[in-house]
Amino acid sequence: MDPTRNRDLIEGIARVVSVEGGVAVLEPEQTTACGHCVSASVCGQKGGLGDRLVARRFEVPGDGLAVGERWVIGISERSLLRASMAAYGLPLLTLLGGGVAAQAMGAGDGVSALASVGGLGIGFLLARWRARSLEDGGDLSPTLLHRAGSGDMCHTE
């Protein structure tokens, strides 16, 4: 284990794709289900993820960055857990709550399914509200840690 690694941060690699007007745009490198780079094609998953990576580009202040550089980025573990709870936990709870409540009131399969879908919608509204408060607190912004060396892989740890 690298002793210089910050244990409170989940790290990943991002490449600088443009620097304009003091703002740099970075694109994270993609991993596969088995934790390797997509380019390695280790577990049968190949490329074709270009559009997804474009959607996940993010901006940081561009001082000292150059196009093509690879940087190690980090996000705090706590932020990742909070974001996961907001995005997945809240909608799941309301989805299950809606369905189970409908069935407890004697509804059939169709009504229970509709109640679950309704619960899912309410969950997404709650997630939106929670995400805004996380965003306002700066919890969802990755930070640049250091330039990636040739031995740094694209895994997120």
Binding site: Q30, A87, F124, A131, L134, E135, T156
Partner: peptide, 15 residues
């Protein structure tokens, strides 16, 4: 819902 949330968590979805 939140582009920032997507940037943080989107890595897991394709997997």
């Amino acid at each position: 819902v939140s582009p920032a949330l997507f940037q943080t968590l989107g890595i897991y979805l394709p997997l």
